[in-house]
């Protein structure tokens, strides 16, 4: 021990560092389950997709369904509502997105413009907006005053983004599968 030089790493130094590193890796591995247990569990993930019948919704009306614990607005848009959504200058929007990008194609391969499906959660702080309210005939959030249009796009207020379009597909003409 006495003849080792301070500036020259010894076998013992190496063993200290190696042991310490292994202990750190071991501690991190032991902590990970404690952290990851808080992520969504298998039973929550099992409810990740659901099918809904939309055939009974008349034109100009909307239903709210629950998917993953969140409200989903399914709106059967009228011609005027679609026209209103399409007539906007996209580049003037806070979160620019054309109306075509917010609807999907049905089983026939054509865009199902009459169906708007959005997550009914304000992108500001998570409140549920009120339907058919606000100056753009879309949605109005009562919490902090965000206003969305008939395409669920943010037009006014503190919310940064458009209402989220969930992943969904048409199973048939009158059924959609969300998730």
């Amino acid at each position: 021990m006495a003849e080792t030089h301070a500036d020259e790493p010894t076998r013992r130094d190496f063993l200290y560092v190696a042991t310490g590193s292994l202990a750190a890796v071991g501690a991190a591995a032991a902590i990970w389950p404690l952290i990851d247990q808080m992520n969504p569990d298998a039973s929550v993930l099992a409810l990740a997709s659901a099918e809904f019948d939309i055939g009974a919704i008349p034109v100009g009306q909307e239903i709210t369904v629950k998917w993953r614990g969140k409200p989903i607005f399914i709106r059967h848009r009228s011609e005027e509502e679609i026209a209103e959504a399409e007539s906007v200058d996209v580049s003037s929007l806070p979160d620019p997105q054309p109306d075509d990008a917010r609807v999907i194609a049905g089983p026939g391969g054509e865009l199902e413009k009459q169906w708007l499906v959005v997550v009914g959660i304000c992108t500001h702080l998570g409140c549920v907006p009120l339907s058919y309210r606000g100056e753009y005939d879309g949605y109005f959030c009562p919490c902090h005053g965000s206003v969305y249009d008939t395409s669920g796009r943010i037009r006014k207020g503190p919310a940064p983004l458009n209402l989220e379009v969930p992943p969904y597909e048409f199973v048939s003409d009158t059924r959609i599968k969300i998730g």
Partner: peptide, 12 residues
């Protein structure tokens, strides 16, 4: 999502 343990405030 980690805080919620799901996709919204819920049971977890």
């Amino acid at each position: 999502t980690w805080l919620w343990g799901g996709f919204a405030v819920g049971d977890p």
